[in-house]
Simulated assay, not measured.
Amino acid sequence: MPSRSAEAADAAAWRAADPEVELWLDYDPAARELPGYALGRRRLRGPVQQEVTELHRAGVRCLRLTGPVHLCADAPAASARALTLLREATGQGLAVLWQAVCTDGCAARRRFHHLYPPERVTGCAPEVADGWRATYYPSKCVFRRGPGFVEVRDRRFGTLELFTIDEPGHLAQVEALSEGVDLELLPHAVHRDFADAGLIAEQAGRAWFLPMRVRRWPFPSLTV
């Protein structure tokens, strides 16, 4: 079991790992070259859901993660925080330019294939990134809230998997997991059930929720 000093160091590293992004007002690469469309670089220091919502309201439609993002279980806090940002940006409909790094083959297992595809995946065969781009579509793994439950619809692995979360202890953790929860503080039953269902990633001493929040329902809805 990690010592309290190690846990404190992990928590501090997580808080300090604010993602840095480059921002534009348009999806189109040609339009992004026009005067006034580039907004420069910014370090996002707040909760990722809040930050992405504010960027979208300000007219941002494309962002670039300035550093490589490691996908594996041993990813540092900076990569884990970048992935939560990528999840929120994908759910908001933003285009994301980013470079992935994989050293243990996890990219081929499609856990992250609901996220906006990377330009390249270092450490994997080229067909991994090609397949990610070829099979990507919006809302591939999403959740939505109802009265007293959360529904997750997951098509990352081809067929639809439907999960209904209605136990109070599990529901109480969904919002916290969107930003990342210390693994030592996550109730065992919640950790076990979400991990078994493939709904959380565990990196840098934190667990974070993989499904994206539904913001706009696609048409036709049966494709989700």
Rank of each mutant, 00 (worst) to 15 (best):
R110E: 13
F112S: 05
A201Y: 09
H56A: 10
W14V: 05
Q203T: 02
L199K: 09
W208C: 07
F194P: 01
A197Q: 15
P118S: 05
G158L: 08
L65D: 00
G169D: 10
A17Y: 01
R216F: 05
H70N: 14
G36D: 06
L39M: 07
S139V: 06
L199C: 06
E7D: 10
R57S: 08
L44P: 03
G131L: 11
D26L: 10
T66R: 00
E151C: 13
L210R: 05
Q50I: 03
L39Y: 00
G46K: 05
R43E: 00
E179L: 02
A16Q: 12
W24G: 00
E184F: 02
L65N: 00
H70C: 15
E54Q: 14
R192H: 07
R206Q: 11
E51G: 04
L25A: 13
A189R: 14
A78F: 03
A176L: 12
D74A: 12
S178E: 12
R111C: 02
V224E: 11
A108K: 09
G46P: 01
W208S: 10
C72M: 00
A77M: 03
R61W: 05
R109D: 11
A176P: 13
T122H: 08
A82V: 01
G148C: 07
E119H: 09
A8W: 12
T53L: 15
F209Y: 07
T103S: 07
G148A: 08
T66P: 00
P76A: 14
R120A: 14
A31S: 11
A9W: 04
P126K: 09
V121S: 02
S5V: 11
C106E: 14
F219Q: 08
G198P: 09
R144C: 04
R216L: 08
A201I: 07
R120H: 06
L115W: 06
R57G: 13
V121D: 01
P29M: 11
L115G: 04
P138I: 03
D166A: 10
T135E: 15
L171R: 05
E54D: 10
H70Y: 14
G93K: 04
L25D: 11
D74S: 13
A78I: 07
L71M: 15
R213I: 03
D104Q: 13
P187W: 11
R144W: 10
Y137T: 08
D104A: 14
G198K: 10
R109F: 03
E88S: 03
C102W: 01
H70S: 15
D154Q: 04
V101G: 02
G59S: 05
V101L: 10
P168M: 04
R4E: 14
A89M: 05
A30S: 14
E179I: 01
V128L: 04
G40S: 00
A172W: 11
A16I: 03
S5M: 08
P29D: 09
P211W: 06
F209T: 00
T135N: 11
Q203H: 05
H191V: 03
P35Q: 06
G158D: 06
D193M: 12
L44G: 02
R192K: 10
R41F: 00
A13G: 09
R43I: 00
A100P: 02
K140Y: 05
R57T: 06
P118Y: 04
A89H: 01
V69Q: 12
H113S: 15
